[in-house]
Design a protein around this nucleic acid. Structure first.
Lengths: 218, 218
DNA sequence: ATCGAATTGTGTACACCGTCCACAATAGCT
DNA sequence: AGCTATTGTGGACGGTGTACACAATTCGAT
C-alpha cells in the first residue's frame, strides 16, 4: 500500500558523521514499534527519519533482524520500567505480607496497563524472533537491563518470605503467574475482545490476579 | 533477503481456468502459515505454488489482508478441530463431575499441544489483524466454523451443571481460563523459554490447569 | 603536522513484495 | 452463434531489505 510521499533526499545534515547513529536508529525504531507494532519497524523509514541513507544502518546493525532484536529489548525494558514505576508507588509502611500481596498485584496490573497503553511496544517486545541470530547477540541485548521476568520473580520471593507462598511451590511459579497475565494482555489487544478491552480488563483483571494468588498457594 | 531462485513462468496448467482458485489459495496460504507463521504468508509465493500469476488472487480476495483473514480463520478452525478431537477421546462412562473436570483439562492440554505442534498456525490464528477490514468480512469468515472459544464455553457450562463452578462465577470465566492457557502457549513458543518448551510445558501445564480450576470456583 | 588506515555515510543496483491497469481467454446464457 | 460477465495474464510502479564499490571523515602513528 504505497501511501508515503516523502522527500527523496535525506541530506539536511551539517557534518558528514552523525554522532550516534546506532542510538538514533534504535530510538527511531522504538517510535515505529510504538506507532505500529513489529511489522511497522521498517529500516528505510527509520533511516529516513534520522536523515541518513538506508545502507548507513548496516554500519551499526548486521541486518534488520539484529536491529529489531535491539528494539525488542528496548520495548521489554520499557515494560520493566513501567512495572518498576508502579512498584515504587507502593506505600513503604506496609507489613511484609501486605507488601508482598500488593507487589504481586502491582506487577500484574502494570503489565496489563502497559499492554493497553502501548500495544505496539508490547507486541514488539514479544514478537517472535528469527532464531538464526547468534546467541551472543541475543544475550548481549539483554544484559544490564531490568527485565520484567526478574521483577516478577523478586515479588514472588517476597511472598515466600512473607509466608504467603510455600517454598515448595516457588520454582516455576513465575510461569504460572506470567502466563495468566500475559495471556490476558494478549487477548485484550488482539483476540476477539479487542475494542472492549478496557471494560473487560476492569472486570477480569482483579479476578485473574485473585486466581493467580490462590493458584500459587498449592 | 533474496534467496529464492524459482522458475519465472507459472504456466504448466492445461485449462485456462483453474477450477477453484480461491480454495487453492487458501490451502497454500495455510501451508505457508504452518511453515513460517503470519509473516511467511506471502501472496506471490502462494500464487506461484498454485501455478498462477500473482494478480489472479485479486479475483478472489480484495487484498492480501482479506486473504490473510481467511487463513486466520482456517488456522483457528484447525485449533478448534484439535480440541474437539481431544474431547472426543474422553471416556463416555465418566460421571458428570468427572467428565466436566476432564473436559476442561482436555481443552487446555489440547490448546497447548496444538501451539507446540503447530506454532506457525497458532501464531497466525492470533496474529493482530488490520482493523480496516469490513466487519462483514470479519464476521463472514467465522460463521459455520467451530471456534475454540465456544468449545471452552461449553465445557465451562458443563462444570456449572455439575456443580463444580458456582453460576455466579460463570460470566467471564472463559476469559480467566483462556487467558492463562493462551499466555502459557504464547510464552512457550515465543518468549524467553523458547527451546525448552516441551519440558517446561510438562512441568507447568498441570499446575496451570489446577490453578484455573481453583481460581474459577471463587 | 602529516599521512595512511580504519570507520562511517553515499550511490547504485538487485530481487522480492503488494497492488493497479489494460487486455486476453474462457464459461454461461440467450 | 454471439454477447457478456468472469477469471487469468502481462506489464508497471513504488515499497522493502541488502550487497557492492566508493567517498568523506576521523584517528593514531610517525
Amino acid at each position: 500500500m504505497p501511501t508515503k510521499t516523502a522527500p527523496k533526499k535525506p541530506k539536511p545534515r551539517s557534518s558528514y558523521r552523525h554522532g550516534d547513529l546506532a542510538r538514533a536508529l534504535l530510538a527511531a525504531g522504538l517510535d515505529l514499534a510504538r506507532e505500529g507494532g513489529p511489522d511497522a519497524v521498517v529500516l528505510r523509514e527509520a533511516t529516513r527519519r534520522v536523515g541518513v541513507v538506508p545502507n548507513a544502518a548496516y554500519r551499526h546493525f548486521e541486518s534488520r533482524e539484529a536491529w529489531l532484536l535491539a528494539i525488542r529489548s528496548g520495548a521489554l525494558a520499557a515494560l520493566a520500567d513501567a512495572i518498576e514505576a508502579r512498584l515504587a508507588t507502593l506505600s513503604p509502611k506496609l507489613g511484609a505480607a501486605a507488601r508482598a500481596r500488593a507487589g504481586l498485584e502491582a506487577v500484574g496490573a502494570a503489565y496489563i496497563d502497559f499492554a493497553l497503553a502501548e500495544p505496539g511496544l508490547f507486541r514488539t517486545a514479544f514478537a517472535p524472533c528469527d532464531d538464526n541470530l547468534s546467541e551472543a547477540d541475543l544475550a548481549r541485548s539483554t544484559i544490564g537491563r531490568t527485565n520484567p521476568f526478574q521483577l516478577l520473580g523478586r515479588e514472588l520471593d517476597r511472598m515466600v518470605a512473607a509466608g504467603l507462598l510455600p517454598a515448595a511451590g516457588r520454582p516455576g511459579a513465575e510461569f504460572l503467574a506470567w502466563s495468566a497475565v500475559h495471556g490476558l494482555a494478549m487477548l485484550l489487544i488482539d483476540g476477539p475482545m479487542r475494542g472492549h478491552s478496557r471494560d473487560i480488563a476492569a472486570m477480569i483483571a482483579p479476578r485473574l490476579l485473585a486466581m493467580i494468588e490462590k493458584g500459587l498457594t498449592v
